[in-house]
C-alpha cells in the first residue's frame, strides 16, 4: 500500500508541477490544485498508513494518529479557499487584459 501511495503522490506532484510551469493561468490554477491534493495526501500519510486501527492508544495493538487528519482538514479548507480566489482573480485578469498568459508577452498570431 505504501508503494502505491508513494507512486500516486509522485504522479500527482509531477502533473501539478508540469501544469504550474505552463504560462497560462488556467493550467497554473489546475496545477496548483493537483499540487495541493498531493500535499494533503502527503500530510495524511505523515501519521503512517493503517487500516482498521482505532485512533485511541491502548485499545488495540496498533493505533491511528488522528492529528494529521486534523492538519489535513485545515490545509484542505485553506487550499480550497485559495483555489477559488485564484480562479476568480485569473478570470478578472483575463477580463482586464484580454489574454490569459501569466507573463505579459503578446500572443503569437
Amino acid at each position: 500500500m505504501e508503494l502505491l501511495y508513494a507512486i500516486l503522490l509522485g504522479v500527482l506532484t509531477a502533473c501539478g508541477v508540469y501544469l504550474v510551469l505552463r504560462a497560462r493561468t488556467f493550467p497554473v490554477v489546475v496545477g496548483l490544485t493537483l499540487l495541493s491534493y498531493a500535499v494533503n495526501l502527503f500530510l495524511f500519510a505523515a501519521g503512517r498508513l493503517h487500516t482498521g486501527a482505532p485512533p485511541v492508544i491502548g485499545r488495540a495493538p496498533a493505533y491511528t494518529d488522528p492529528l494529521p487528519q486534523a492538519l489535513v482538514l485545515t490545509a484542505i479548507v485553506i487550499g480550497f479557499a485559495l483555489t477559488a480566489f485564484a480562479l476568480i482573480l485569473s478570470l478578472r485578469a483575463l477580463g482586464a487584459s484580454g489574454h490569459d498568459r501569466v507573463d505579459d508577452r503578446k500572443e503569437k498570431p
Binding site: 504550474v20 493561468t25 490554477v29 485559495l82 485564484a86 482573480l89 482586464a96 501569466v102
Partner: peptide
C-alpha cells in the same frame, strides 16, 4: 489585478 495574480499564485505554491 496582474500583479496580484502573480503574488497569489507564487504564494499558493
Amino acid at each position: 489585478v496582474r500583479a496580484g495574480l502573480h503574488y497569489v499564485l507564487i504564494n499558493i505554491a
